[in-house]
Design a protein around this nucleic acid. Sequence first.
DNA 1: ACTTACTTGCAAACGATTTGCAATTGCATT
DNA 2: AATGCAATTGCAAATCGTTTGCAAGTAAGT
Lengths: 143, 143
Amino acid sequence: MTNPIAEKRDYEEELRQAGVRITRPRRIILGILSETEDHPDALAIFRRAVALDSSISLSTVYRTMKLLETVGAIRRHAFEGGPSRFEQAGGAHHDHLIDIETGDVVEFRSDRIEKLQDEVARALGYEIVHHRLELYGRKLRSK
Amino acid sequence: MTNPIAEKRDYEEELRQAGVRITRPRRIILGILSETEDHPDALAIFRRAVALDSSISLSTVYRTMKLLETVGAIRRHAFEGGPSRFEQAGGAHHDHLIDIETGDVVEFRSDRIEKLQDEVARALGYEIVHHRLELYGRKLRSK
DNA sequence: ACTTACTTGCAAACGATTTGCAATTGCATT
DNA sequence: AATGCAATTGCAAATCGTTTGCAAGTAAGT
Ligand SMILES: [Mn+2]
Ligand SMILES: [Mn+2]
Ligand SMILES: [Zn+2]
Ligand SMILES: [Zn+2]
């Protein structure tokens, strides 16, 4: 799906521009993020990173996630119960449906819902800065 | 707004039915919950409780919140950043708009959004078990 | 290559919440 | 009203995910 090399290149350039040094751990973590389709948590990223460079520490993963979040390169999600999970930013906005049996995350986007959210907020005298819409459900065994 | 006495009575009866002992700390915490209009966190509840009975401990507040959540008497919300905040259950379903400047919580309900959520989930082959919709915004300085 | 500020790994600290344990209490029973 | 025992409490210590201080290592402008 994703082209790892191209995306990684962009990422690094983008970060250099933001004045962020490209270090070995950061390059590895960025690579992992651009190749993954799921929403891994810090520990999962750490495990994948260690496989590529055994000297990487969990603290560095956490620090890097926070840095990338700050510069807007990734997005953090605090789904119910578990630890924070991450995904690369850059794609279009979307919300998530979490399979409560497997933990799988399905992305979706509803412009109608987005618009209604704005209307609701405006009616209450507010403007939305950001929002969080998470559906927790189970696969319906469609005959 | 709320009638403390009537609501408290109901609560206790409801709990007795569920086989829960009505202890002094529990009675106090229930009283606090039925009188409050906001969405206090455990520490806020603890502070208010201590004012009524200085011997109450924070652990008991946490244990009680968990118990009440389990029996369905209260609802827990994990808004962005902060600790869990609670509200008594029993009212109709609603979602929340959080004022990112003050932390104030405004409740709202949109049947149109609720319906669209169901449609989205069904289209993805899922049935919603529960969901979380939180709008984070700031008051718009209306002309 | 030299310099220096930025990063790292490690271990210890963190904040919210949970838990083990011995002492206390609710309440069903006499 | 007194008894008995499991449920509940307060306290301190433990837990979990995450952050941080620090001394050592490194990116990258010169
Ligand atoms: Mn996503
Ligand atoms: Mn509410
Ligand atoms: Zn959305
Ligand atoms: Zn809703």
